[in-house]
Design a protein around this nucleic acid. Structure first.
Length: 453
DNA sequence: TGAAATGTTGGGGCG
DNA sequence: ACGCCCCAACATTTC
């Protein structure tokens, strides 16, 4: 039997525009498509509940795929011995633990006499490809984005899904990974999402055909389906950044949308160059920020019981659908870290568990951004007013009423200030007065303002 | 990718 | 007709 070539799939669960797969197929040898459910990833950054749901369904769509479970290094060693594989291909990942793991694995494979090849498949630009004038990595988005545009002709064309002879090998069934929840909190997920490469492409096409042309004007209104909702597909690599770029680029509304894709790249680069991004503030002066951890506040926020309709609608959307509109993510994030003075890492951890698009670079970079301690971060005095944000971006209360049914009878005039309404509702009173919370946040942030780097 | 406070302007009501 | 005041609308600055 001809010896196979292994393609090690990670968060690149697709066959189209997959450079590792294309390279393996080009060898002319049988290709073993391998997925390893990795038990080596640090416990804190294993897939959260919502992501496991997605992963289950995304893996179910992969064909062919051989699924194994364990420590990647060990599994690869076993699979190479079982199959006599002569080469292993994968697309590079950029999370700190993944970089360390892949480096070790490459060395191990070379020691075994196996050709180990990593490819650029998950980004437009490698984190070391774009440099500022002084040679360092970008820390501000706008110049980063300009550099992306200036170099966009270098990303190359997307690759079609290659033809190849599939090698087969015993593996686990998806069910045996035990990724689905035991309690049925995932009901709302099925009608909203279609994980997998086909679902990703379909989502992109639908978006391009209509909402994208108005993306710039409508993307901030959470009751309107004006955003692409591609984030989970992108996180799991069911479609590549490059494919999204090329497919969207010729159509109306593309620039505003592609700018957001570039934010994903920016976060990836940022994490690569700052490996402690998920844990520690990027700006050292925030090390002694006077957070006031409080279990009751945190719990009220998680459950969507803060008494601010736009905040609670967002937190409940997250719980029910595994996703939250971006505008609302900013509002709930600001509320948690500023009004409630809870450490941003708490919000980061909750999002990690609840989001189907939980993504280490994006999640950590965005939480640091809203907390003001990150790159290109919000100025310390920027405190979102949850009432005004509600009035501005959900003026009819359509979004709020959808996710906070207790408020269905509240008239429009009071939908964002239900505590001023004389009627009866079981909805809780605000857990903190807006102005008091705002002032307390400004005081706390003022302490940090003059700290030296 | 903000909000609030403060400042400025100009139209309309009214003595 | 005129000056004065009020206040909404807009602009600027401050947090």
């Amino acid at each position: 039997m001809t010896k196979p070539v292994i393609v090690w799939f990670r968060n690149d669960l697709r066959f189209a525009d997959n450079p590792a797969l294309t390279a393996a197929a080009a060898s002319g040898q049988p290709v073993l498509c391998l997925y390893i459910y990795d038990e080596e990833t640090p416990a804190q950054w294993r897939e959260g509940g919502a992501s496991r749901w997605w992963l289950h369904h995304s893996l179910s769509k992969m064909d062919p795929i051989c699924i194994r479970k364990g420590v990647a290094e060990k599994v690869l060693e076993d699979v190479v011995r079982e199959t006599g594989a002569v080469a292993v291909h994968w697309n590079r990942a950029y999370e700190p633990y993944a970089v360390a793991r892949d480096t070790r694995i490459k060395a191990m494979l070379k020691d075994m006499g196996v050709d180990a090849q990593s490819h650029k498949g998950n980004v437009l630009f490698e984190p070391w490809e774009l440099k500022t004038g002084t040679g360092g990595p970008y820390r501000v988005f706008t110049p980063f984005y300009k550099a992306c545009l200036a170099n966009i002709n270098l990303i190359g064309a997307s690759l079609p899904a290659p033809k190849f002879e599939a090698a087969s090998l015993d593996g686990l069934k998806v069910d045996e990974l035990d990724l689905l929840p035991t309690l049925p909190w995932d009901k709302g997920f099925y009608e909203m999402w279609e994980p997998g490469e086909d679902g990703a492409r379909e989502r992109l096409q639908t978006f391009i055909e209509s909402p994208m042309k108005d993306y710039k004007e409508k993307r901030d209104y959470p009751s309107i389906e004006a955003t692409s909702r591609l984030s989970p597909h992108l996180h799991f690599g069911e479609i590549s950044h490059r494919d999204v770029w090329h497919t969207a680029e010729p159509h109306a509304g593309a620039p505003a949308f592609l700018r957001e894709v570039a934010w994903r790249e920016f976060s990836i680069h940022l994490l690569y160059h700052n490996p402690t991004l998920p844990e520690a503030p990027l700006q050292p002066k925030f090390a002694d920020f006077p957070w006031q951890p409080d279990a009751k506040y945190l719990e009220a926020w998680k459950r969507g019981m803060t008494g601010y309709p736009i905040v609670d609608a967002g937190m409940r959307e997250l719980w029910q659908t595994g996703w939250m509109h971006n505008r609302v993510r900013m509002i709930v994030g600001s509320f948690l870290v500023k009004h409630l003075l809870q450490p941003w890492q708490e919000g980061e951890a909750w999002f990690w568990d609840c989001l189907v698009d939980a993504d280490l670079p994006n999640n950590s970079a965005s939480w640091q951004w809203i907390a003001g301690c990150g790159a290109d971060a919000a100025p310390y005095f920027r405190v979102f007013n949850p009432i005004l944000q509600g009035l501005k971006f959900d003026p009819e209360g359509a979004y709020v009423r959808r996710f906070v049914p207790e408020l269905k009878d509240v008239p429009n005039d009071f939908i964002h200030t239900p505590w001023e309404w004389m009627g009866k509702t079981s909805y809780p009173a605000p857990i903190i007065n807006h102005e008091a919370g705002r002032n307390r946040a400004l005081e706390a942030y003022a302490k940090v303002k003059n700290n030296k780097e």
